[in-house]
């Protein structure tokens, strides 16, 4: 938690406008209600950069990272599949189809701001069901087949999103945004949109984390210990998809966060989901803030898409997990 806060502040101070760490701290501390007005020491542009641009972006990064990492932990636990993640399951792409459709065509409903995430949730759920149907053979779901189905569906939906975007005016940037994800040009509005979903989703997943622990022994085993298996699966899948949907709605498809973060947490603290779930939320925020800092500074003043950074880290990690599974073949992991 402290690490996360420190990262947020350091990340805030890194940027193309070149403000010193102590200035950023100072401006932030002066935002607190009992502190004197910051306007006396810093000029308005500096204050705006810190509070409006950078702070909102860092906060959004933390929220999106937490959502994606939690969704990954949820999918992995309930599917007993170490390779599962919103991206590899195709759910993120499914959500992006719904979100892109609504945004590109400027559609709205009575739900207002919540329209996009809820439509994204609906298309994400449909995608998940399609992926399940594709991978199920005689009732059993194989770990690799499920991911293969996810990747196939994801390739198709990626093309569909590109097609949707092509129909609109602003082709290149929009397509990049939806396919590779980004936190650029986001505001406090977006952070406010994500926060309530996280506030609801996190406690629900924590509530079911002990159930997920029992799942590692197998579904029937968990049932014999008093777990309502069907209800647990339904709720965890719904919440994970919802978290993915809201993350995708504001940041596009940022891949592999939900794969990398819970695994690293697991390596450090062991297999207990009661610890993995909350730490994944923190770790996801931490991971994404740094990935985003890298994305906006590596080629400064030009920005790389956030999804490029996470994929460059995540894909080799995915390959490593796949390889290790092959080596340990037969052992349930």
């Amino acid at each position: 938690m402290l690490l996360l806060l420190a990262s947020m502040v350091i990340s805030l101070s890194i940027g193309s406008a070149g403000l010193a760490l102590k200035d950023v701290w100072g401006i932030l501390l002066h935002q607190l209600p009992w502190m004197p007005d910051a306007g006396t020491k810093w000029d308005a542009a500096e204050i705006a950069i810190v509070t409006q641009l950078r702070l909102s972006r860092v906060v959004l990064g933390v929220l999106v990272g937490a959502c994606l990492a939690l969704a990954g932990a949820g999918f992995q636990g309930v599917l007993r599949n170490p390779l599962a993640d919103p991206f590899t399951l195709g759910v993120a792409s499914g959500c992006s189809v719904g979100a892109a459709f609504m945004i590109v065509f400027g559609l709205q409903t009575a739900l207002g701001l919540w329209t996009v995430p809820l439509v994204a949730f609906a298309t994400g759920m449909v995608t998940l069901l399609i992926v399940f149907a594709l991978s199920r053979a005689r009732g059993a779901m194989n770990v690799e087949t499920l991911i293969l189905s996810g990747v196939i569906v994801q390739a198709f939906l990626g093309a569909l999103v590109s097609f949707l975007v092509t129909l609109s005016q602003n082709v290149v940037n929009e397509a990049m945004f939806w396919l590779m994800g980004s936190l650029s040009a986001r505001s406090w509005e977006h952070a406010k949109l994500v926060a309530p979903f996280l506030v609801v989703g996190l406690p629900v997943l924590i509530r079911y984390s002990q159930h997920l622990n029992l799942f590692v022994f197998g579904e029937r085993h968990a049932a014999h210990l008093g777990v309502n298996v069907e209800r647990t699966k339904l709720i965890v899948l719904l919440v994970s998809t919802l978290l993915t949907a809201v993350a995708v709605s504001v940041a596009g498809v940022v891949g592999f966060v939900g794969l990398v973060v819970p695994h690293l947490i697991r390596l450090i603290v062991g297999p207990d989901y009661r610890i993995i779930v909350p730490l994944s939320a923190i770790g996801g925020g931490f991971y994404l803030v740094w990935a985003d800092t890298l994305a906006r500074t590596a080629l400064s003043p030009k920005e790389i898409s956030l999804g490029i950074v996470t994929a460059l880290i995540g894909a080799p990690f995915f390959a490593y997990l796949l390889y290790r599974r092959k080596v340990l073949q037969g052992g349930a992991s």
Partner: peptide, 26 residues
């Protein structure tokens, strides 16, 4: 009612004590 399935426990990375404590879940 408790059920002991054939084949025993799968190879999980929990410790023996953690696994046994899970029997207290209900």
């Amino acid at each position: 009612v408790a059920v002991l399935q054939q084949g025993g426990l799968p190879a999980v990375s929990f410790t023996v004590r953690e696994a046994v404590t899970m029997g207290r879940f209900p």
